[in-house]
Nucleic acid binder design. Structure first.
Lengths: 293, 293
DNA sequence: CAATTTTACGGGCTTCGTAATAATG
DNA sequence: CATTATTACGAAGCCCGTAAAATTG
């Protein structure tokens, strides 16, 4: 169960091939084969079927554990080294809608900080941001999601020593429709009533699979992370999407119809590791973002 | 960050000495020294002060992570091997009050199972049980605690792949007092009103530090895990304790005064890893315990 | 038979123990 | 100065690459 072995195990699981995994890890096939053999010997069970290479049930179990384990190992390293030398940079991780909507007020702050610091901004899907905060790749994360009013987002692994989250803003959740659409004149809609409509699934922006309603079907899928593109797709009539009101209002040709049931808001949370120094850049910015304006 | 290094790191942290750690791990001092040096080189920071050996702040951070990391590594191994060969034994882990009170009905079941299986029962404090379930040392855990009515217990690390919990019983929380005590005639008391009383702290039975009330002070501390002893101490007038009503009723000379505020019940939850086979011993017993009687 | 995994084997590095050295209360 | 940590060094073992053999679609 050496981390190295777990790493190559994961590479094999992901690529579905010993040789491809070897390439990715800069190993020889032979080394990969030996790693897997060592793991299988240690655990006393095959982890892959060969030809084709696929996970056995035991392998599938190990995969889930190994992924978390490696992230947490990195997170531990990050937490310790960060305690020693707080980073003199500021890396911001944002989910697409966290960026598009609620931090407008904080942008000036961020810009001001940027003048003094090496600041970078990364946009990625929610789980990636959570992971990046845990491993210290990102100092401050802003993630968003749809949830019941004043309910926290359900983020993966709020484990000890890991990132803490705090809500920094909520806005109404609306169904985005083209302004010419018949629905646009409704005062409110229930999601369940829109089971017949076509939706746009944008897993990295507003994953509609996580909406608390079943049976919606997607006509179009958008794999990017640009909220404007998603809004454009809705405006172009390619399908509906649940979005935060401010984003919809800002986009010409779009109308937002409030969601009646279930009660739903768009919520943004700030995510970070416990502060290590009060004068840390992330600390000041986090303070600004959480302070009531 | 090799697990071996983390293990010796923890041994040093716990014993406060390189040589003691070496003894415990069957290493030489030299090896321990090299392990620590390797970790410190890797992380780029001292983890201990020497003479006396004590954790630096960075070391303290690492300690927290390392403990969890090693448990989760064991848990991963347990989960995988269990998936391969479900254990033909049944190990039950219980907190003291889970045993004393609410599973009486299940005892017959357990005895019946015992006839067919190698069954063992272990009693330990809550966090140890949670950990033991995660690592597969224990197949089925019953843990207890005081909480608001129908609120789940807050257990450490409900992380992915880890144990799941489900409530199996609640009983009223009462303040146990000797029957001759003036309080014994009260219909209800508020914990806050008992700030002047002396309490018995029994960290491994009913840790009163976890009660949602501050400022209680302990006169006696009981470090064992025997609920009857604790009840006896209360009956003997050594102090008060918050306990589940059935336990108090069963003990001669004790009276239970219902807790008015805060709203508080004694709750028992069943803890186990996701089932791997429907005919697993743990599965049947879990089913019996969770089925409404 | 072509592609891919497994096995055999050897060089180089890592790891741990012995033993000598250094540090400190 | 006795206790405890560090450093030096060498043998044993592990790890990964080369290359040959085995497997299978």
């Amino acid at each position: 169960m050496d981390p190295h072995l777990l790493r190559t195990f994961l590479a094999v699981a992901e690529t579905g091939s010993f040789s491809a995994a070897a390439q990715r890890l800069q190993y020889t096939q032979s080394a990969v084969s030996q790693h897997v053999a060592a793991l299988e010997a240690d655990l006393g069970t095959p982890l892959f079927t060969r030809r084709p290479v696929a996970l056995t049930p035991a392998g599938e179990r190990l995969r889930r554990h190994a992924e978390l384990l490696l992230v947490r190992l990195e997170a531990a390293r990050a937490d310790v080294t960060r305690a020693v030398a707080p980073p003199g940079r500021l890396v911001l991780g944002l989910t697409p809608l966290a960026w598009a909507v609620p931090v407008a007020a904080a942008l000036a702050t961020i810009r001001a900080e940027s003048a003094r610091l090496r600041t970078r901004v990364r946009v990625a899907a929610r789980d990636r941001i959570v992971e990046a905060v845990a491993t210290g790749e990102v100092d401050l994360g802003l993630v968003d999601g749809f949830t019941a009013p004043s309910d926290p987002l359900r983020l993966p692994e709020p484990g000890a020593g890991g990132p803490r989250s705090v809500g920094v803003g909520e806005s109404p959740a609306v169904v985005a429709v083209p302004s010419a659409h018949p629905l646009a004149r409704r005062r409110a809609v229930d999601l369940a009533d829109l089971a017949d409509a076509y939706w746009i699934d944008a897993p990295d922006v507003a994953p509609f699979a996580r909406l608390p309603v079943d049976g919606l079907r997607a006509g179009v899928r958008y794999d990017g992370t640009d909220a404007a593109v998603l809004a454009g797709l809705v405006a172009g009539g390619h399908g509906l999407a649940v979005l935060p009101l401010p984003l919809v209002s800002a986009h010409p040709g779009l109308t937002g119809v409030p969601v009646g049931t279930p009660r739903l808001v768009h919520r943004v949370e700030l995510l970070r590791l416990p502060a290590v120094a009060p004068d840390e850049p992330a600390e000041r910015l986090a303070h600004l973002l959480t302070a009531p304006t």
